[in-house]
Amino acid sequence: MKNLQLIKSDNLSELLELLKKEERKYNIIAGGTDVMVLLKEFLIDPQCLYDVSGLSELKEILVDNDSIEIGSAVTMSDIISDSEVSRYAPVLVSALKEVGSPLIRNRATLGGNVGNSSPAGDSIPALFVLNARVNIVSEGNERSVKIEDFILGPRRNVLEKGEIIKSFVIDKMGTDERSFFLKAGSRNALAISKANLAFRFMLKDNLVKSMNLSFGSVGPVVIKSTMIPQLFIGKKPDPGLIDKSCSLVSEEIKPIDDFRSTAKYRVKVLENLLRKCLDEFC
């Protein structure tokens, strides 16, 4: 952190042009709630920081007929207080309310949480169940990838040199859909998740019409459940099916023992969190 240069612009194309030419080691910074901590703990050692928090193109929330686009530099507080996101993507709002504290959420951004690519990032399972796409921009180029293809491993993602996250496009949930975000941590606020899950489903005529489920903090990346939705789709949920689905949790996740928790605890707690969601069926 000795000779650090901050490069800030309110013009996206100007910043992208500078970024493309940059030959030094750099990091992108928005609210800084992760980057500053990594810097202070010497976990990253950039020569310069590109500050995207002044780019108005990255700070918009646009609501369309069937999707919502959220700029990467919109703060979590602003997403939480947005009435349309609360209405059409409540699972994202529930997840963001679990991040840090009000002080953190006033600075932290969705782009930062995803760009940091931690397996424990609370917004990521919610983005999974909302079928989010990540819009990436660089000088003269734009591309879009699915959230599950964006993150490659702990703190690794597909962003290449010169690229930044511009926005996220998520599904607008229907009024007949329900969703949950549940998290287990050491305390309510400011505790990184030991395990979390995002769940979205729709019932029609007592049958499960659709179900999206994802687990966080229990593998190198967030895990999208395939077996459990498969088990339920087209069926009437009953206690037997719920028991069976909970027993599938340990087959789908790959938790590890680390300083935050143990693999055994993580499996058990996710089984219980899932049961809590599924009990809503009956």
């Binding site: 901050l6 800030k8 800084g32 709630t33 500053m36 901590v37 202070k40 920081l49 500050d51 928090s53 507080s77 009000p102 002080l103 953190i104 006033n106 600075r107």
Partner: peptide, 19 residues
């Protein structure tokens, strides 16, 4: 280290002065 920055509370220990 809480301060109010443009009307919002922030942790000033993880904000750069230049920001």
């Amino acid at each position: 280290c809480t301060v109010i920055l443009n009307g919002k509370t922030v942790n000033s220990c993880i904000v750069l002065a230049v920001e």
